[in-house]
């Protein structure tokens, strides 16, 4: 890092002109005496923070709805001069962002901000899901009750398509669990043709909320889909994660979404060894 010199007290400019100012005086003891302070030329070597050591924050995303029926509009911004925002849709070619993006189909967007001389932002990603025009009629029950403190709006609200807000701190939609296993039973009123399902989870390590070890989808005695998760690495930011799970294409009357919680919080966390929390607010089934 480049050393810079920064003069921080009142000095007589003439002293500087004749070059007697490079001496570094320790003025600490003289601070009590205003007269001394005036005479003292304090100078400090400061390693000012350099641009190339600073990372940009993640860009701000504004989405009309992450669960949409026809289309969703995404506005992206980071208020810095000459900032460049790039995004990809489903991992495709990066695009330069210039105006709000309209999305017509289920997609994952990844977004970064760049600025010359600075470290680029971390990658933001967001899953946006096209949901059926008609709400799927189903009865949802839970084999285990959520924590008294985080009951959300009950089991049925897991499929009301009313949720999915990013402002999870400001709503109480989340069902919180500390169980080893959570079984969500879904009984469709009419047999429904399906090939995928999404679980909307909250990840907030600071609040001891983690992703599960595995999510399994069962139909009677057959597992028709599953997803496993690695031991989570330290993640500073809280995030809403919508986890897509492919299921065996077919027509179903009943499904069980079995969420298998991690045994304990990972070793790097202050809560290491204790049971983690699991927070879920929505299960979305789509064709």
């Amino acid at each position: 890092m480049i050393k810079s010199i920064y003069a921080i007290t009142i000095v007589i400019i003439a002293m500087t002109l004749i070059g007697c100012s490079t001496k570094k005086s320790a003025a600490t003891k003289e601070l009590n005496n205003p007269a001394e302070k005036l005479k003292t030329h304090q100078e400090v070597d400061i390693d000012f923070l350099q641009e190339n050591n600073v990372q940009l924050a993640k860009p701000q995303l504004m989405i009309d709805s992450i669960l949409f029926k026809k289309s969703a509009t995404i506005t992206i911004g980071l208020d810095l001069e000459d900032v460049i925002i790039r995004y990809t849709i489903n991992g495709g070619t990066p695009h330069l962002y210039s105006h709000p993006i309209q999305i017509m189909e289920t997609a994952v967007l990844t977004i970064t901000a760049e600025k010359s001389g600075y470290k680029s932002s971390a990658i933001s990603d967001i899953q946006i899901i096209k949901v059926p025009n008609k709400k799927i009629n189903a009865t949802v029950t839970l084999a285990q009750n959520p924590s008294e403190n985080y009951p959300g709006n009950g089991a049925q609200s897991l499929m009301d398509l009313e949720q999915g807000t990013l402002n999870f701190k400001e709503n109480n939609e989340w069902l919180g669990f500390q169980n080893d296993e959570i079984d969500v039973n879904i009984s469709f009123n009419d047999p429904t043709r399906l090939k995928s399902l999404y679980c909307s989870l909250l990840i907030d390590h600071g609040a001891w909320i983690f992703q599960p070890k595995e999510i399994q989808i069962w139909n009677k005695d057959q597992m028709v889909g599953n997803k496993t998760f690695l031991t989570p690495i330290k993640q500073m930011d809280a995030a809403l994660k919508i986890i897509p799970i492919d299921i065996l294409e077919g027509t179903y009357s009943d499904l069980i979404v079995r969420i298998i919680n991690r045994d304990s919080i990972p070793h790097w966390h202050p809560g290491a060894g204790t049971p983690p929390w699991l927070f879920i607010d929505e299960i979305i089934v789509t064709w």
């Binding site: 480049i2 810079s4 010199i5 500087t16 070059g19 350099q50 641009e51």
Partner: peptide, 16 residues
Amino acid sequence: ASNNLLGSNVEDYKDV
């Protein structure tokens, strides 16, 4: 400043 008060290359500075 003959004693080169600010270092050799002011251009290098990119203090945030």
